[in-house]
Amino acid sequence: MSSPLAGAPLAGVPARARRRRGGRRGRLGWNALGLAVFALIIFPVYWMIATAFKRGSDIFADTPVWFPIHPTLSNFTDAIHRPHFWADVKNSLIIVGCVVALSLVLAFLAALALAKFRFYGRKAFIVLIIGVQMIPLNALIIPIYLVLAKANQVDKLSGVIITYLTFVLPFTVWTLRGFMIGVPRELEEAAQVDGSTRFGAFVRVLLPLIGPGLVATSIFAFIQAWNEFIMAYVLLHSPEKQTLTVWLASFTTNRGTAWGPLMAGATLTALPVVIFFVAIQRKIAFGLTAGAVRG
């Protein structure tokens, strides 16, 4: 591919130099554009945080106050002292904790089968796992609500936990399988040759290697369950039994929204997700499109 350059070194040099000089001025332009795009993209997030720290008079100003010059925490104290905030935080944590733990155990076993065994029906199960993730949850909420109503599980956290497995479990199986495939079989075989049993080889070789994958998968499962809205919105009626996302959405139902506390509440809701997300972002991108380049 580089042969045209190598064939004409004398002609290539000035052209390249010219390009570099033009490139510096060009780079400056691109950087300016990049900065503008950054500002545009990040603005909504900035605006949420800025509003959360502003005084009421600065929020409801005729000319926007672009920076919280008089920073205050009153919006945050207002938000967390709203009715049911702490109860709903607790509900979110209980639901998310149970969903992550349950799906991790179930998915771990299933992913092990899919990644480390070849058996009849394996491909069918893979199609099933991918296929069920395409079913819109908004469609399933109707039968799920009616079934749970019959089983007396509406307005109960247990009903929501069962429901959340519909989207967290298939995803967890698929992602964990991807991480397990990454472990070379030779390593396990070497351990077995060295006298370990299959189980011993598994515990000492496979488990430490997929540890980071397990952590990343459970964090992503956490984020999905934490962010879920419609299922909790339909299934949980009493305000003290709702999740944080439903609590946040209920802020806006009345005329005349309290924007300051709302933005503070939004910041608090987003905070754990953003922290976790930034920590595992690379692995998420990998999990969603794993192998796409090779396809």
Partner: peptide, 27 residues
């Protein structure tokens, strides 16, 4: 600038949908 832009994109990506809707509603 690449680092800055990537960081910005990741923050937007991480923003929960319900939070994003509230922000836009406010804007």
């Amino acid at each position: 600038i690449r680092l800055l832009l990537t960081a910005g994109l990741i923050f937007v990506w991480a923003t929960p949908v319900v939070v994003a809707v509230d922000i836009w509603q406010w804007m």
